[in-house]
Design a protein around this nucleic acid. Structure first.
Length: 528
RNA sequence: GCGCCCGUAGCUCAGUGGAUAGAGCGCUUGCCUCCGGAGCAAGAGGUCGUUGGUUCGACUCCAACCGGGCGCGCCA
């Protein structure tokens, strides 16, 4: 399907280029908004790609391409211009912009969505914080990212399942229980135990009569309940809560048999090993220790085998930066199971640094997700954590982020949305009035720029989805808000001769801002 | 030692082959009889870590090096 006027235009450029060269160019030509206004509305590098094929100078090819394109597009194209090393700059007519806006209006609130060419069933596993402590700032970033990515993938047209893996099995749960019991009895916390104040809050779960196993179960249940509440408050939803304990013993044994059937396990020094080195790992990994205990890795393999059998086209795991060394072995193990490692994406969230000291789970003074939300609010927290690429470490300046003023771009974007509402209220219009009569007067540059920005939305969504990059949406939302504000400054809406047109433009801008914010899980208020 | 991520304006960071490298914050100077001033306009501020290479063209791709972060368990 068409992603709108821009992709139609891009297709026209590609066709014209293909006609000229009798073959498509090696790489797809660009069609972008140039930085300078006098370079036209859009610019393509097609001629420079074609020049080697035609054995002609790029500027010469650009001239021929311009003629070809003018013939195809007629009055939509006011004029073309060859520039620089061989760019072809396109100057589009008002009629093109008016039709383009009509297309956006007709698309309604779904504008920008559904563009995925190959729809995939995707599992997104994120946060998966250990149920032995509260979620900290790193989990907050992971949660915001995984949630926004899920929203974006779904909006783009994929079928998404969101999943949280609960590590409710193994030695850490026992240590957790031991820590609680020790706390209850006033004894010293055991080596490698848990010390935070939250442990003290849990001593009531242990009446002294029940087994340590039971203490562990109750404590984990309580921590999971708290995690669910924190995430819900952070506007993060989860479809599946997958218990590690539920893997034992059947699913783990099943995974072992799958590996064994592929000939990828062996026994050595009393332990059971997985031959991950055959699949790119730098050493083989233990599945069952010589003591008979399963490793964490055994659980993870069983978990991924289970996901495999649930029939996804793609598995996405969002992990913390301290797990990056785990990627190679996990992919290797997935291949050893017979899976296609290309369909297993292991994404790493880089750290969030606090100006003073770093977060440490077992230290007493940690900044939790709940603290963050209480301090600076859901909207600002999500925006702050999502505005940067997941593979760069970010600094969190609590003072700055918490100021509800101009320093934080999220309020600027929300303000633009609220301001549009004020304009619509003043005009006595609603979202239902999006349609408009034909526009006769020439368009102002602010109108053209805003329409062009709206048209860019589907490509931004596609980019954010394909590259797992929610921060692109944040950047886009800010730019769109700026573009609307410029339009608002220069073009009177209420009472203008072209009020219908400008109301329609305002409505589409408001919808698109609201959609972009929603993809980030940020509210779009009608007033502030 | 090996591996992953990062190095772009004073600060925090966008920019995965195109023209004169951008935004927010901070700083300077203007703007409130005019649809919301949580705003707008203008300005100062850069050897895109370094050195080579590929290319008509490199912040972008490749190599080496320098600097920072994080990992390299029969822990989870």
């Amino acid at each position: 399907m068409s992603n709108g006027p821009l992709s139609d235009l891009h297709a026209a450029v590609l066709e014209a280029a293909t006609t000229l060269a009798d073959a498509p160019p090696r790489s797809s030509p660009t069609l972008e908004r140039p930085k300078q206004a006098d370079f036209g509305d859009l610019s393509t590098n097609a001629a420079m790609l074609l020049a080697p094929l035609l054995k002609a100078s790029p500027r010469d090819v650009a001239g021929r391409l311009g003629d070809e394109l003018s013939g195809r597009l007629g009055e939509q194209l006011t004029r073309v211009e060859v520039a620089g090393p061989g760019f072809l700059n396109l100057f589009l007519g008002d009629a093109w912009f008016v039709e383009a806006l009509r297309h956006v209006i007709d698309a309604g609130p779904e504008w920008g969505g559904g563009g995925a060419t190959a729809v995939e069933k995707v599992d997104v596993e994120f946060v998966s914080a250990n149920p032995t402590g509260p979620m900290h700032i790193g989990h907050a970033r992971n949660a915001a990212y995984g949630d926004a990515l899920s929203r974006i993938l779904a909006f783009h047209g994929h079928e998404v399942e969101r999943e949280f893996y609960v590590n409710d099995f193994g030695s850490q749960v026992r240590r957790f229980a031991e820590s609680i019991r020790a706390r209850r009895l006033g004894e010293e916390i055991p080596e490698g135990g848990y010390q935070g104040d939250y442990v003290k809050e849990l001593v009531g779960l242990d009446d002294g009569e029940i087994s340590l196993d039971e203490v562990g179960r109750r404590a984990v249940d309580e921590m999971v309940a708290r995690t669910k509440a924190s995430l819900a408050h952070f506007r993060v939803s989860t479809d599946v809560w997958f218990s590690e304990r539920s893997l034992h013993p059947e699913k783990v044994e099943h995974a072992f048999s799958v590996l064994e059937a592929q000939g990828n396990t062996y026994r050595h020094e009393g332990a059971l090993w997985c031959r991950t080195t055959d699949f790119g790992d730098d050493k083989d990994r233990v599945l069952v220790r010589s003591t008979g205990e399963h490793t964490y890795f055994a659980s993870d393999i069983a978990y991924h085998q289970d996901k495999r059998e649930r029939g996804f086209d793609r598995l996405v795991d969002v992990w913390g930066a301290d797990h990056h060394g785990y990627i190679q072995r996990m992919k290797a193990a997935y291949a050893a199971l017979g899976g296609d490692p290309e369909t297993l994406e292991l994404l790493i969230m880089q750290f969030v640094n606090l100006p003073k000291g770093k977060m440490s789970k077992r230290a007493g003074n940690i900044v939790t997700l709940d603290d963050l939300v209480e301090e600076i609010g859901v909207d600002a927290t999500r925006w702050y954590l999502l505005q940067r690429s997941h593979d760069t470490t970010i600094e969190l300046d609590l003072d700055l982020a918490s100021r509800k003023t101009a320093e934080n771009p999220v309020y600027y974007v929300q303000y633009a949305h609220a301001r549009i509402q004020a304009v619509l209220d003043k005009a006595g219009r609603t979202q239902a009035d999006a349609g408009f009569a034909d526009r006769s007067l020439p368009l102002e540059s602010g109108e053209r720029a805003l329409i062009m920005k709206l048209l860019a939305f589907p490509a931004e969504v596609a980019e954010a989805s394909d590259r797992r990059a929610p921060h692109r949406i944040a950047t886009y939302a800010l730019e769109l808000a700026q573009e609307f504000t410029a339009f608002y400054r220069d073009c009177r809406v209420v009472g203008s001769e072209v009020e219908d047109f400008r109301v329609a433009l305002s409505i589409t801008a408001q919808r698109t801002i609201a959609r972009a914010l929603d993809l980030l899980g940020v509210d779009a208020p009608h007033s502030m």
